[in-house]
Amino acid sequence: MMKFLFLILFLGPLTISSRSQSINQLVEAVKAKLDKVQSYQARAKIKTNVSFLKVPIANVTVYFKGPNQIKILSDKGVSFIPKGAMSINTGSLLEGSGYTVIDGGKERMDGRDLQIARILPNDENSDVVLSTLYIDPVNLLVRKARTTTRENGTYELELSYGRYSNYGLPDKLIFSFNVKDYKLPKGITFDFDDGNSPKPTAKNTPQKGKAEIIFSSYQINQELPPGIF
């Protein structure tokens, strides 16, 4: 309770003053908030939604160590963990050897006015070409992020906050990413045709995959078990 009070007292002035801040200052404020988390260990469920994958919900533990190391370990041996989910940490978008922030204007989403910040890495060799952050200036939270990369296409994060919003850590995160169409070479499987074949579709375009990550608990800034990273 004391902690909560402290946070309100501490963050209160920050949020009020943020309205007048330039976009640069807003991003810095968000970064500062996120930087409070040096490490965490979180329990989560990953529900993967990709048309060709029929996999059960995976129970995982997410390990984070500042500034930008993240590891997702499944409880079970066999699980499909979306690779891009390694960058679910919004803070990592603000790392690296400097970046340029461009004001992208405002957008109203779910009854909130969000400030759009476009982040351009200064490093020309960076995989990330452009990140767009939709920032809730009132709570200093990234509600949505879109990242365009050179190698891995564009992915999108939609974040919902709850118990851990003070640390900028989401309760739920929908991660959208590009997946290439999966095509097995015919003849290696000798499949049983149960007469239920879907209609052939003329799609060879990359599909969208989604992964819903629901965090159940975080242990923040506590020592992580050794050997994770």
Binding site: P56, Y182, L184, S197
Partner: peptide, 14 residues
């Protein structure tokens, strides 16, 4: 994991 070709689609089932 089951790898399967179903009609025009390939699937992976767990």
């Amino acid at each position: 994991l089951i790898f399967r070709v179903k009609g025009d689609e390939s699937q992976i089932m767990q």
